[in-house]
């Protein structure tokens, strides 16, 4: 007994002392360096201000946060949320059927659909959005065809408006909606659907009572992954909205570039981060798994 207790206590002592060395894994170190430190810096400077030559002055102030309540900014926030929400909704309406069809296809068709979905990613999204501009423009493909057919006399305003921005967002972000939904549908136990039919559920009710609730985690995961970038993808609003439909992302980008107002940009970013955190929290609260979000 005595001989055995000696190494045990030694081991215990080592164990008590090692956590600092061993528990802090290299991954944690990387996470701290790459994420926590920059975030902390953003938070810090959001309470600072700038001097005449745009240097950050480390004097605590909440002026940047007070400025957030400027009616113009609030309306931009509202506009951003509206566009992001619409993009999200349309992504669901388009992405859900796509994911369903993909999940129920043969492996070959599945691969094909996946390729269609992912291939555009090999091209810069800016270039692809320029492509949309040439389709939607006044002399673009759609207007030319419609005019040729005599359906319209004046070209339709398809570009440089909210519609175009939402379209661009949906186009760029759709895969992020499809993939989580697809994963969840694949995992869905088919016998649950049979059970629902067996118990008298017609297809529509079966969908709303069983399929939809059981795949909602995929929709939620996809929505987070569409909604959050849609708030910040200023290049989409620049290209498709013609720069006259600003998102909060545009305002933030300008603070860091032309306006040299990093502290204010940081404060704006903190609000975006907060919105993100709230959404993710709501997601995990309702039973969503972080893995499904990080699956990308």
């Amino acid at each position: 007994m005595a001989s055995r207790s000696a190494p045990t206590s030694l081991r215990k002592r080592i164990r008590r002392k090692t956590p600092l060395l061993t528990m802090v894994s290299p991954v944690t170190v990387w996470m701290v360096i790459l994420i926590a430190v920059p975030l902390a810096y953003v938070l810090l400077i959001s309470f600072c201000s700038t001097d005449e030559s745009h240097h950050i002055v480390f004097a605590f102030s909440v002026q940047n946060y007070v400025k957030l309540f400027d009616p113009t900014l609030l309306s931009i926030y509202g506009n951003s949320l509206l566009i992001a929400g619409l993009s999200c909704l349309i992504s669901i309406l388009v992405g859900y059927p796509f994911a369903t069809i993909m999940a129920n296809s043969s492996p070959f068709k599945r691969t094909l659909m996946m390729a269609f979905l992912m291939l555009p990613f090999w091209t810069n999204s800016l270039i692809r959005l320029y492509g949309w501009r040439s389709i939607l423009g006044s002399n673009g493909f759609i207007n030319s065809v419609l005019q040729e057919l005599g359906l319209i006399t004046q070209p339709l305003e398809l570009l440089y408006n909210h519609f175009a921005v939402v379209l661009g967002m949906v186009y760029v972000l759709l895969p992020f909606m499809v993939l989580p939904i697809y994963t969840v549908i694949l995992k869905l136990d088919h016998s649950l659907l049979e059970a629902a039919s067996d118990l008298g559920a017609r297809p529509a009710r079966r969908f709303f009572k069983v399929t939809l609730p059981l795949t909602s985690s995929g929709i939620f995961a996809g929505s987070i992954m569409v909604f959050i970038p849609a708030l910040g993808y200023f290049f989409v609003s620049n290209l498709m909205g013609g720069g006259t439909t600003q998102l909060i992302g545009n305002v933030i980008a300008r603070q860091f570039k032309e306006a040299f107002n990093w502290p204010f940009g940081a404060a704006l970013s903190i609000i975006l981060i907060l919105i993100t955190l709230i959404l993710v929290r709501a997601y995990t609260k309702t039973g969503g798994k972080m893995d499904d979000l990080g699956a990308m």
Partner: peptide, 19 residues
């Protein structure tokens, strides 16, 4: 020219213009 701290005024004008 660089406007110094007054660039904020331009930024605000622009935010209003492009909202």
């Amino acid at each position: 020219q660089d406007l110094g701290a007054d660039v904020v005024k331009y930024d605000e004008l622009w935010t209003e213009f492009t909202r």
